[in-house]
């Protein structure tokens, strides 16, 4: 699989390249929050929160829910799937390798005891 990753604001890869936006995604993964909540939690200015939320909303990584006059935001995990799909096989390759290392280390520990 090759992912086209032209740097545009419509590209989720590009959207999460910014560390602040990843921080925001991680926060909104745990709970749905309003802009004011986010300002409180992260200590960023309101315009900064709005700017990054805007980019994440545009690529669909964050969804918005209106409740009366309030708006709440949450990470849209489904949209993170292509990014996860990209790195997952490589991570699994290393995971299998390290699981084998676990077994080798157990044997070494046993040998040390004897």
């Amino acid at each position: 699989m090759s992912m086209a990753r032209t740097p545009t604001t419509h590209d989720p890869f590009n959207a999460i390249a910014e560390p602040k936006r990843r921080e925001l995604l991680e926060l909104l993964q745990l709970q749905e929050l309003s802009v004011n909540d986010i300002v409180d939690r992260l200590g960023w200015t309101q315009p900064m929160v709005s700017k990054h939320l805007g980019v994440l909303k545009q690529v669909g990584l964050v969804s918005e829910r209106r409740d009366g006059r309030q708006r709440f935001y949450r990470t849209n995990a489904e949209q993170l799937k292509p990014i996860y799909d990209w790195v997952a096989p490589f991570e699994r390759y290393w995971s299998e390798r390290f699981n084998r290392l676990d077994e080798v280390l157990e044997q070494l520990k046993q040998q040390q005891k004897e």
């Binding site: 990753r5 990014i83 290393w94």
Partner: peptide, 10 residues
């Protein structure tokens, strides 16, 4: 023990 790979875009 989880293996974590971090490969930031770009």
């Amino acid at each position: 023990n989880k293996t974590v790979v971090t490969a930031e875009p770009g």
